[in-house]
Nucleic acid binder design. Structure first.
Lengths: 221, 221
DNA sequence: CGCTTACGTTAGAAGTTATAACTGGCCGCT
DNA sequence: AGCGGCCAGTTATAACTTCTAACGTAAGCG
């Protein structure tokens, strides 16, 4: 939040205004979703008229890109902090769900429906791999060491594939079994979480937390 | 597709034009996503000017709702047809993925990011439960009968919850274990599928089909 | 203290959804 | 067969949107 010392008043003001714009953008997104975000409305809220915002963001797309970047960062930070506090895989799972429920539309900004033309900027890929690294750290249990752990379902075919395609974990020494565990953690929890946030369980009378916890229990058996 | 006999020419024409509008809408959605759908553009494509479309759809929202309904129907039909052809749970899994890959944006229309304000019409709930019924049919293996099958992970806590909250399967005699299997099938495959369609695996060098098949193998061990 | 920079303004173009009012032609009924 | 009503599609308009361009003003920098 606080910034480095040497900074001209103009830069100060500029950073402050950019932050306020983003904050209002988040409020709009939380209530109306990403497609409901309107630069004009934000400008009016801030007491200035329309095109003024273009001094601070090149356009709607750049603002949204910035928000996506921040969302990614926020998730990576949340997970990294939890891991630093000694959270295991289950703990990370709870952190993930808490982060998602805190602002569902923020979750969807990262993991939701993509716009066909949109290309994610380079640095989100970096953050994504940061996230995977946190998961990989937790996926190889520090206590339960050794090569063939009392693990649920080895699936040699998948692990063979993962052993050959591990660019995404190039800078992490995790074994194929850990890769598999981290990946499963991600895809399975995302499956439940995204359906929950989209409201697909509400009409069914199910408690999403129950499903989520069950999956989590199973994941870190 | 073909319609009942007694139908005035006007109704014929009307139905035909509605169909053409929807078809063009699908094309737009496939290339630009749901937010990129423009009634005006469709009208221009069809050689008529703007507000003419309002004769056929009350507005953009109604058109999209109609498309969502059709997408739901299409998925339910695909799964029901596969099941009728003797597909087991794994077969339904492949049907689901094929249906999703056929038109990713159609999948997202059903299972993607929801617009906060939007309320799904009643009949999509009916279709959703149709889908769950197909899954439930396949989730209680016809060969593998009995009460305590050689099933992977019972999780009595989850099954207790499912036994008490089964409104969504009220008209299906499936046992809690089958409910659990159908639900897991849905949430886990959706997890992988939605991440694949959103392109989250492409930058990682992973083959989504490999992940999907592995999960499928594990699901119907 | 003056000059430059950049901030915010208004004007306007090109879109969008959606409503209102009007016209022309087709359909159906007598 | 012919007339009348309904309905499709039109243009005009309002209220939005993003975004560009040109312009003044004021604030900060040297």
């Amino acid at each position: 939040m606080t910034v480095a010392g040497t900074q001209t008043p103009r830069e100060r003001y500029r950073a402050q205004l950019r932050a306020e714009i983003k904050q209002r953008a988040w409020e709009q997104i939380a209530t109306a979703g990403a497609p409901g975000l309107s630069l004009n409305a934000i400008a009016k809220q801030m007491g200035m008229s329309g095109p003024a915002l273009y001094r601070y963001f090149a356009g709607r797309d750049e603002l949204i890109t910035e928000l996506i970047r921040d969302a990614y960062r926020s998730l990576a930070d949340a997970l990294r902090t939890a891991a630093a506090s000694g959270a295991d895989l289950a703990g990370l799972g709870h952190t993930l769900r808490a982060w998602a429920l805190e602002d569902p539309q923020r979750y969807f900004l990262v993991y939701g429906t993509p716009v066909p033309g949109y290309e994610a900027p380079e640095d989100t890929l970096v953050i994504a791999s940061e996230i995977m690294n946190v998961l990989l750290d937790a996926a190889q249990p520090p206590g339960t060491a050794a090569s063939t752990p009392p693990d649920g379902h080895p699936d040699t075919r998948l692990e063979a594939h993962l052993a050959q395609h591990r660019q995404w974990a190039a800078d992490h020494p995790a074994a194929p079994a850990a890769l598999r565990r981290a990946l499963r953690f991600w895809t399975r929890l995302h499956g439940i979480l995204s359906l929950e946030l989209a409201g697909h369980f509400t009409g069914m009378g199910l408690d999403p937390a129950e499903l989520y916890d069950s999956e989590l229990r199973h994941l870190s058996q």
